[in-house]
Simulated assay, not measured.
Amino acid sequence: MALNGGADGACENWELTKDMLLEEQSPRKSPKRAVLSLLPSSPPRAVVLLALLLALSFVFLMILILVNIQRVSAMREELERAQLQDKQSHTTAWHNLSEVRRALDTQLSAELQEIHSRLLNVSREVEDVQQKMMQCRAECGKELRDRVRALEERDVLQPALQQLDELRQEQSHISTLLSTALEETQNLTGMFCTRCPAGWQQFDKTCYYFSTEGKSWVEARAACSMLGAQLAIINSELENKFLANNIMEIRAFWLGLSDMQREGDWEWLDGQSLSISFWRKGEPNNVGQHGEDCATISSSGLWNDVTCTSHEAWVCERSC
Rank of each mutant, 00 (worst) to 15 (best):
A46S: 14
L64T: 11
Q88V: 05
H90L: 10
F58S: 13
K32W: 01
R28T: 02
D86L: 13
I69C: 11
A34K: 06
P43G: 05
I69D: 09
S37I: 00
S37L: 06
A34W: 01
L38E: 01
V67Q: 08
L38Y: 02
L52C: 04
I63A: 14
Q88N: 13
V59S: 04
A51F: 02
E78K: 03
S37K: 03
S42V: 09
N68F: 14
S30G: 11
E78F: 04
L64H: 07
E77W: 04
L54E: 06
T92H: 15
P40S: 00
P43C: 04
S30R: 15
R33C: 02
I69R: 08
S57H: 09
D86C: 13
L64M: 07
N96D: 12
L66N: 08
S42N: 10
L84Q: 12
V48I: 14
Q70R: 15
L79A: 04
V35F: 02
R33I: 00
S57E: 14
S41D: 03
K32M: 04
S30T: 15
H90N: 11
Q83H: 10
S37C: 04
V48P: 00
A55E: 01
L56T: 01
F60G: 06
W94C: 09
L49T: 12
K32Y: 01
V47S: 08
R45Q: 14
R76Y: 06
L64I: 14
L61Q: 14
F60A: 10
A74P: 05
R45V: 11
R71L: 04
A74K: 12
I69A: 11
S30E: 08
V67F: 08
S30N: 10
Q83S: 10
S37G: 11
A46E: 04
L53I: 03
P31R: 00
K87Q: 12
L39I: 01
E77I: 06
S73A: 11
S89M: 15
Q70A: 09
I69K: 09
L79T: 09
L49Y: 11
Q70T: 14
L56F: 03
I63H: 09
Q70F: 12
E78R: 09
R45E: 02
N68H: 10
S73N: 12
S37H: 02
Q88L: 13
P43E: 02
A46Q: 08
L84R: 06
Q70W: 11
L39S: 00
S41K: 03
R45Y: 13
L54V: 07
V59G: 05
W94V: 10
L50D: 07
A93S: 11
D86S: 10
K32F: 05
R76V: 08
A93Q: 12
I65S: 13
P44K: 00
S30F: 09
L52S: 06
S57R: 09
R76C: 02
S41W: 03
Q70S: 07
L50Y: 07
V59P: 01
V48C: 05
L84M: 11
V35T: 06
L56R: 04
N68P: 10
L64V: 15
P44G: 00
A51N: 03
V59D: 01
F60W: 06
S30M: 13
L36I: 00
